[in-house]
């Protein structure tokens, strides 16, 4: 029994003497926090979400303890690098936001809970942003803890972090925002949510850009004199933030997923550019979803 419930059970006196019913409609902010709180409570009851968070957090610890060391870093590099502790970042930065945000809104319509909530004296924007806020805070929180574990475990290796761990974390958080907003905004257009779609698009997009770069930039298809590639600006898009964030900790590991070819293209812009692109991307997808929720008929 929680303290709330205990208070109810023992509160027959209060029950008998309820004051005059002059409930005042709370402010938008209070309602937003109520929606946020309810969504967090829903997350806390979801086994899949809890399982995924544990997996994400446990990787740095597994790597540190040596259990995963041979599997993950064995062949690639003989010398230990702290960024191995976050080796799955490029994958998780896509999967976790998509999992957290890709279904929470569409399921309200599919499971008819919206039929209850949307009749209450609460604007639809409040539900929309309250739930998004919960998805973002939870996703970003998972990465914050993964970074914290990685730093703590890494110092156990006796490793210092020569590169920009804080900058990497900021970029990671911006990427999480962009991808959470994308999954969330798109989910309003699909009955079963957007989780699978977002994961698929975001994982394949880097490969497509890579192929385009190889075909045009390196072969000189568009501009033989250009040392970079016309596709370089695409590297600032959110699906790349995971690789970029890893690269900022350790240049060698950032490109591991896509091979050496990829790593030579990482890091051509400043962190500010990546963060700005992610913010714009996120806001656009949020607006896209909001328009849809606004005009949705139940």
């Amino acid at each position: 029994m929680t303290s709330d419930e205990a208070a109810i059970a023992s509160n027959d006196a209060a029950h008998a003497a309820v004051p005059g019913r002059n409930y005042k409609l709370p402010s938008d902010i209070d309602q937003l926090m109520a929606v946020f709180g309810a969504q967090m409570r829903l997350y806390s009851k979801s086994k899949i979400v809890i399982g995924f968070i544990i997996i994400a957090l446990v990787i740095p610890i597994l790597v540190y303890s040596g259990a995963a060391e041979t599997i993950i870093k064995g062949a690639a590099d003989a010398s230990p690098s702290p960024s191995y502790l976050l080796i799955l970042l490029p994958l998780f930065i896509i999967a976790i936001p998509a999992m957290m945000a890709g279904r929470i809104l569409s399921s309200e319509f599919r499971n008819r809970t919206a039929y209850l909530l949307f009749t209450l004296p609460v604007s639809r924007h409040i539900y929309y942003f309250g739930k998004f806020l919960a998805a973002f805070v939870l996703s970003a929180g998972v990465f914050a803890m993964a970074y914290a574990f990685a730093v703590i475990c890494g110092s156990g290796y006796g490793l210092s972090y020569p590169n920009d761990v804080l900058g990497s974390f900021v970029m990671c958080t911006a990427g999480v925002f962009a991808l959470t907003a994308m999954a969330y905004g798109l989910s309003t257009y699909f009955k079963n949510g957007s989780t699978g779609l977002v994961i698929a698009i975001m994982i394949f997009l880097p490969f497509i850009v890579l192929i385009l770069k190889a075909l045009t930039g390196d072969i000189g298809f568009f501009n033989p004199d250009y040392t970079g590639s016309v596709w370089d600006p695409l590297m600032t898009l959110p699906p790349f933030t995971g690789y970029q964030a890893l690269y900022m900790i350790d240049h060698g590991v950032g490109g591991m997923f896509l091979g050496e070819l990829y790593s030579t293209f990482l890091g051509p812009y400043s962190t500010v550019v990546y963060v700005a692109v992610s913010m714009i991307w996120g806001v656009l997808f949020l607006l896209l979803g909001m328009l849809n929720v606004n005009k949705k008929e139940l």
């Binding site: 208070a7 509160n11 209060a14 309820v18 709370p26 709180g37 209450l120 004296p121």
Partner: peptide, 11 residues
């Protein structure tokens, strides 16, 4: 909470 009923009055 959405309707502004808070504190012991809520329970």
């Amino acid at each position: 909470k959405l309707r502004g009923i808070t504190g012991p009055g809520l329970n």
